[in-house]
Structure formats: C-alpha cells, structure tokens
Design a protein around this nucleic acid. Structure first.
Length: 488
RNA sequence: GGCCCCAUGGUCAAGCGGUUAAGACGUCGCCCUCUCACGGCGAAAACAGGAGUUCGAGUCUCCUUGGGGCUGCCA
C-alpha cells in the first residue's frame, strides 16, 4: 500500500460526539495499522455556526480518549496550517485557477433571484438545481459587475450529462448521475470556501491517501470527485463508515441523553470502555473477543470488516464494558480516575486526597467490584467518608426483629472490641467464631451489622467494610445503631 | 419528491451457496454466596416480504416495504 495518510476533520460547532469519536478512532486505527500518519484538521469555514471553545473541547476529548495526531493543531506539521480559516489564500488561488481554466465561473445571482428559481422549479415539481444563468456571462460582463461592486460567488461547472463513479472501500462501486448535480458554490460571497471545495483542496495538499468519514458524506462524494478532476488532482481512496443512530433509529441529538464524549466522561465512563465500545460498534474482528485494547485493535484493524449497517448505540453494553474495565484495570489507575468523583460528591477535599490516598484506594478496591461507573463508585462509598445521618426505621423494621437484632449487634460489637487483628481475615475470624458460638447462620448477624455500619443493605463484603472502617469507627457506629433501634 | 446507502434476535454482531443460523449485552431461571455484584450453567429470542437463479439461498439478482443520508453561500 502507498504511504497512508488519513485525517479527521471536525467542524468546531460543538462537542465531540460519539459518532465523530468513532470516525476519528477508525482513522487512527487505520493509520497505525499501516504505519501511516493521522492528521487532525479543523474545518472552521462557517463563522456563523462556529462555537466558542469548541476547538479546545474537541481537542481535549480526543486527547482524553488517547487519540493523538501526527500533524494538526498545537503540533503543526509539514502541510499546515491545519485550520481552514488560515488557508483562505490557497482556496482563493485554486478557485481562480478554475475560473481561468473555464471550469468555474462567477455568479452574481442575488438571493432573491435564487429563491425565485427555486420556487419556479418547485412549482414544476422538479428538484432544485441552479439554472446556470451566470455561466454564460462574458469576461467583460463579469469585470463590469465586479467593478460595480456586485457581490458574487464562484460556482464550479458540472457536466449536465454522464455519470460519476465513486469507488468506496466499504460500499463498493457507487454510481451517480451527473444530472442530479448542479453548478454548486465553491467560494461564498464572503470569500470563504464551501465544504466540498475546501475539503478537496486540503485533502490534496495534505496528501491524504484515504478519506475515511461518516456515511452522510457519501452523497457529497461525486461532487468532490468531479472537483478533483477539475482541479487535476489525484483522487484518494474513499471509505464511508456507517452512522451511529439513537435508540429510536433517528439521528443522534441532545434529546437522546448523553451523546458527547465529555458527557460520558462526566457520567463516570472510562476512556478504555468508550474506545472499546465504539470500536465494537461497526467493526468485528471475526472471533468471539469483545474486550480489546487499542494495541489489539491496531494489530487486526481492516476496513474489510467494517460494517455497512448503521448502528444503534446501546448504553447497556457500554456500561457492561465499563464495569469490566473498572474491575480489571490497575487499582491505582482506577483510584486516580475515581478521585474527581469523590471530590465532586464532597466526600474528600482536594487537599485531603494525598493524605487519604491509601484509605481511598482501599475503599475503591472494595466498592469497584459492585458497580459499573466511576460515579457509582463514589455513590457507593459515601459511608466510608461520612457518618450515617440516620438509619431508615422502615428498612430496619422490615428486615429484622428488634430484640433479636439488639442482642446480636451487642455480641458483634463485643467480638470486634476483643479483636486484636483488624485485617479482613482477622475480623472475619472474630465474627465466624461468634457465629459458631451462637450456632446461627452467618447472614443472621452479618446483615444487621452491615446495616449498622453502612446504613445500607447492599455493599461490599462485611469484613471489608469492618476492616476499612477500623475498630474505633465500627464500635461507634454499632453503639449508634443499637441506640437507634432501642428507640424504635 | 428525486438520488444514494443499508436490512440476521430488543441491541451489537458472526456467517461470505449446503451450519441443529455462532458469540456478546439486555431479559428470565438455576448454581455460587453475608447482601449486591462478579463468575458458572441454562432458557426465551432473528435471516423484513415477494418473485427469480440454483440440485440447494440468510448468503446471488430483481421488486416491494422499512430505516438512514444527501438534495444549503452547513459540514
């Protein structure tokens, strides 16, 4: 294969959403797989839709996911600049070349004139296409119009007949009738290029070998192919990957809940899980394997087994994958990732983190087995950092007999008091001995104790809780619980 | 409306002319168990419909239906 150069070219109109992230990921995988370069280019030619901070948001999301670019913003590169707004001269120059070669022309039609054309064609029930009335203007007429200061756009001449073929690596040969196209605008009246023009010029000058992008661009591709031909550029390979749809099969939008990488991060998803899930959505290596690292994927990635079908994303599976990584990734890493959620919940302050790190780590170690999200780790850890405000009387009454519970808790407390070894094994032995002595089932005393210590009926193994909390705190909470039940 | 893409369980997804149509998530049941998870075992659950081609079709062709995209001085 020739030298692989691919790019991800987002438009800074909002956050990086998961569809964009997947497109970026597939480009990245492809580049790595074939030892090529991955380029990031910002397509900021529409000033009206441009959103403040959007570029930095997209950049930070990509970095967070671990998608690093070889050329692009911040690091530059041989073929920069990598913001389209900084490449205006190039577009202007290439557009002028097309005009000089008779392949493009100035158009002075006003918005009203275009609107009128549109209406007329609508009345005739034919799809709108620009009539081409300015295409026959003489050089003198053009010059005079310009001299008069008339606003204009530049349009490319599209052949009225024939057809244009797009060779797509995923979809095969796709045929388009040129009659469906019209002389579309390549330079707007504000001197900015349009997408189908800037994209082609940049992909050429940035020496892009494979254009891997979302399927929504497939219909734009014949226009671009014609543009490559007009400009005399070599045509790159195309691959249009399917889109990600919302659960109701419509295009993903805000009303479908979290759709941006940033939101998923805030909800407590790990980047490893997001990357893994997005990879799985639309690409299958063939075997049964579902959990794989970026390194695994890079080794096997190929456009041949990228799915053609649009995929509906399923938060359930994402969460399942997240739970897997939460449980299996290095404990220190998970702890560090969880800390912001502890802080956000007010369980620890930023200053305390260092001193309490070992304690936090123990809590995370116990709790992560039970939950799927980092935010849930924090939720499930609350009582390790805060006293129990009050027990839920209904919960207590429903589950336990009052007198019996008080007796058991008192015995349990005494056993803990006597225990000299407060390791998990140590406290378990103390409790197991007591259980044997009383001749009861373990659960009979374990459940009330958990409730006394955590205020909850679900959580980590009791002996983990006891060991982490420590003797002093355990005894205090046992007393508190006993007093509470006594007052019922 | 026109053009283009797509179509295997609820979701993702193996399959690339001959299979009892994998697997995963989710759901349900059982086991493990101090709860909840994890893990293990098992179950229900799919080739959108119709014509062809073929000895034989989920796999190839066509039509219909359904979904999606494009049809912008958005990208």
């Amino acid at each position: 294969m020739e030298k692989v150069r691919v790019r991800f070219a987002p438009s800074p109109t909002g956050y990086l959403h998961i569809g964009g992230a997947r497109t970026a990921l597939f480009n990245y995988f492809f580049a790595k797989r074939y030892g090529g370069k991955f380029i990031l280019r910002i397509e900021d030619t529409d000033r009206e839709r441009l959103k403040e901070d959007s570029v930095s948001q997209i950049i930070s999301s990509l970095k967070w996911l671990g998608i690093e670019w070889d050329e692009g913003p911040e690091i530059g590169g041989e073929f920069g600049p990598y913001f389209q707004s900084e490449r205006l001269e190039l577009y202007r120059k290439e557009a002028q070349r097309l005009v000089d070669e008779g392949k493009a022309y100035y158009c002075f039609c006003t918005e009203e004139e275009i609107a009128k054309e549109r209406e007329e064609q609508k009345a005739l029930k034919v799809p709108y296409r620009y009539s081409g009335r300015c295409s026959t203007l003489s050089k003198e007429e053009v010059e005079e119009n310009i001299k008069m200061g008339k606003p204009y756009v530049i349009r490319i001449r599209i052949p009225r007949e024939g057809n244009t073929v797009v060779e797509d690596l995923i979809r095969g040969t796709v045929n388009f009738d040129n009659s469906q196209l019209d002389d579309y605008i390549i330079i707007k009246s504000n001197n900015m290029p349009t997408y189908n023009f800037a994209c082609v010029v940049d992909d050429h000058f940035m020496k892009i070998s494979h254009v891997i992008r979302a399927e929504e661009h497939l219909s734009n591709t014949p226009k671009q192919v014609l543009m490559y031909e007009a400009l005399g550029y070599e045509i790159p390979k195309f691959a249009h990957i399917s889109m990600i749809l919302a659960p109701d099969r419509s295009k993903l939008s805000k009303r479908h809940g979290a759709t941006s990488v940033e939101e998923f991060k805030e909800q407590g998803y790990l980047k490893e899980a997001i990357v893994n899930y997005l990879t799985l959505l639309g690409w299958a290596p063939g075997g049964d394997e579902e959990i794989f690292s970026v390194e695994d994927t890079v080794k096997k990635f190929s456009l041949d087994n990228v799915s053609k079908t649009a995929a509906i994303y399923d938060v359930n599976k994402l969460s399942w994958i997240n739970g897997h990584y939460l449980r299996n990734l290095d404990l220190d890493y998970i702890t560090r990732e969880a800390v912001p959620f502890f802080i956000k919940k007010g369980l620890v302050s930023e200053d305390e983190v260092e001193n309490k790190y070992d304690y936090i780590k123990r809590v995370v170690s116990a709790v992560r087995e039970k939950v799927k999200l980092l935010s849930e780790v924090a939720d499930a850890s609350e009582y390790f950092f805060k006293d129990i405000d009050e027990y839920d009387p209904k919960g207590v009454e429903k589950r336990f007999k009052k007198d019996n519970v008080i007796e058991l808790l008192t015995k349990g407390k005494q056993a803990l008091e006597k225990a000299s070894d407060f390791s998990v094994e140590g406290v378990e032995k103390a409790y197991r001995d007591l259980i044997d002595e009383l001749g009861i089932k373990g659960g009979d005393i374990i459940h009330p104790t958990r409730l006394a210590l955590s205020g909850r009926t679900v959580g980590p193994g009791l002996f983990d809780i006891i060991s982490i909390l420590g003797k002093e705190e355990c005894l205090r909470r046992m007393d508190k619980a006993i007093a509470f039940i006594n007052n019922l």
